[in-house]
């Protein structure tokens, strides 16, 4: 992404974002999203007008520090419960297809 206009949304940018987000978008979707995202990004870029250096960022609306609990065992899901919604399992583990492709 070494475009001269670093914010520009091109089909290449959307294709790359889709691969980062693990969504196999169709070419048609990529083209439609490129236009829509361009409009949205142009609009939301307005935030930089007031986001000056001296303004601190807020990540969380109500300030909270680390939340701890006593280190005692609680109620957890059984294996059966944890696997109940799995698309595929072998009774004790989730089953998936190959993790590495042939070229790897």
């Amino acid at each position: 992404m070494t475009d001269t206009n670093p914010g520009a949304i091109t089909t290449e940018v959307v294709t790359h974002l889709a691969s980062l987000a693990r969504i196999a978008l169709t070419q048609e979707e990529i083209e439609k999203l490129t236009g829509e995202l361009g409009t949205i990004v142009d609009s939301v870029a307005k935030v930089s007008e007031v986001a000056t250096d001296e303004v601190p960022a807020t990540s969380h609306p109500i300030p909270l520090s680390n939340v701890f609990r006593p280190d005692v065992p609680g109620v957890t899901l059984t294996t059966e419960q944890a696997l109940a919604g799995a698309p595929e399992h072998d009774g004790s583990r989730f089953a998936v297809s190959a993790i590495l492709g042939e070229e790897q």
């Binding site: 974002l17 969504i23 990004v41 870029a45 935030v47 930089s48 990540s59």
Partner: peptide, 25 residues
């Protein structure tokens, strides 16, 4: 999801997500 992935990508994080958090303040 694509918009969020964009806003969090390296190079744009400060301009978008970081600025939005300042607006929140």
């Amino acid at each position: 999801i694509i918009l969020g992935t964009y806003a969090l990508s390296a190079g744009y994080y400060d301009a978008y997500y970081g600025s939005a958090q300042k607006v929140r303040t």
